[in-house]
Design a protein around this nucleic acid. Structure first.
Lengths: 220, 220
DNA sequence: TTCGTCTCTATTGTATACAAAAGTGCAAAG
DNA sequence: CTTTGCACTTTTGTATACAATAGAGACGAA
């Protein structure tokens, strides 16, 4: 992450996620180059990647804008994520190694510690949650599936989802992770897919409800 | 398609598809720039896009190579395509408009004409086949799904698949298209998904068998 | 007033020069 | 004979200048 284009990528991405660059905002390469302290060349490079990640969309005349996600877009992304991650869980159930199962359990333990206190440690939860899902993808052993799921999971909407989890949701999430490991240990693809599907759908509804209230806050 | 980077993209892509740049070949930006008659800047642009399309992979030290697809990679791509396109067909079945159904029928008619002669017109088949599938995606009304499927369908392996179709396979392909339209007319998502799944799986086996014989030819 | 067109400005696209980094081969030491 | 380090070559990364193109606003004609 030391090349200028990588730094620019990370910086612009975080500017979008943090709302410094709000949805719909036009992106000017030179302005970003100044902000990031690099020339336009690596900025253009970063913008291409962000465009592929759907963080940015380009008009028909080559101008770039921060992507604006409609409710339909959001549901669309979750539906795809449900399908892909469910499929990954099914594949993983019959391919997972004992070592991977051990690592999944370690992350679940860490998540348990993070959600046990009255005030959960969200950053720790997020970190181990991400690693848990990464291991599932690894066990699914499909580079293309990982690639595509990566694209979806990295999208702004999904990244912000867990921020809306209350403690109850975090604990349910943990229980689903544990159930998934049970399914893996029994090589039960059907079960694994069902648990994962429910896991992602619940996340969607958690997001969706929190988002609605968020909208109201903005409107108020 | 008039910008230099677009021309470079198209040209490099076709060089890979036609085998001028064989799998595993290292890619040198300057050499391609000379070949395409443009500077390195648009070539780099094109290479980034081809990398996202998985036509090109980069080593850990930033060098680019034409992607080399293993048998597992190929099956992997087809499995994903089956899942995504099956899902798309299901969605399309309950969203497709009468206008889209008419257009699907028009392309099927064109395909019928192309495969009717003893010597089928493969380019015409490919063209209308592609448009047929594009309309299905359009009817599925999920931008992300379209985007992802586009990534898979455009991959070298898939692009070359139909070249291995014999006349019998082409006719079967047509019949499956027709059955899909029946399923759409009856708004039957289960049926549509099943037909599409079978459609793609058959394409996979057609490819896989032709590929095996192709390998033998190379070995002989 | 409204439409069109023209010009000027803002923004992106391309070329080129130079910097940085990685690969390559040779030589010397062990 | 192998290995390691160093210089040299090749290749990629970045900056900057310039070209091309889209957008915005003014001005004039209908």
């Amino acid at each position: 992450m030391s090349r200028a284009s990588d730094r620019a990528y990370a910086q612009i991405r975080s500017m979008i996620l943090s709302g410094v660059l709000p949805p719909g905002e036009q992106i000017r390469e030179e302005a970003l180059a100044d902000t990031c302290g690099v020339s336009r060349t690596p900025v253009r490079d970063a913008l291409r990647r962000l465009e592929a990640d759907l963080f940015i969309r380009r008009s028909d005349t080559q101008r770039s804008f921060v992507a604006d996600w409609s409710i339909d877009d959001i549901e669309d992304a979750f539906v795809l994520r449900t399908m892909l991650e469910g499929h990954a869980a099914r594949r993983a159930a019959t391919r997972v190694t004992w070592d991977q199962i051990e690592r999944l359990k370690i992350h679940n333990k860490a998540i348990q510690s993070a959600v046990a206190p009255t005030v959960p440690d969200i950053p720790t939860f997020l970190d181990h949650n991400r690693q848990f899902h990464t291991i599932v993808m690894e066990a699914a052993a499909s580079p293309r599936l990982s690639n595509m799921l990566g694209q979806i999971v990295e999208q702004p909407v999904v990244l912000r989802t867990a921020l809306h989890y209350d403690r109850d949701n975090l604990i349910r999430s943990l229980h689903e992770h544990e159930e998934l490991v049970f399914a893996f240990e029994r090589l039960d693809g059907d079960w694994a897919e069902a648990v994962m599907t429910a896991h992602i759908r619940r996340a969607f509804h958690a997001y969706s409800e929190a988002h609605r209230s968020g909208r109201n806050e903005l409107a108020a």
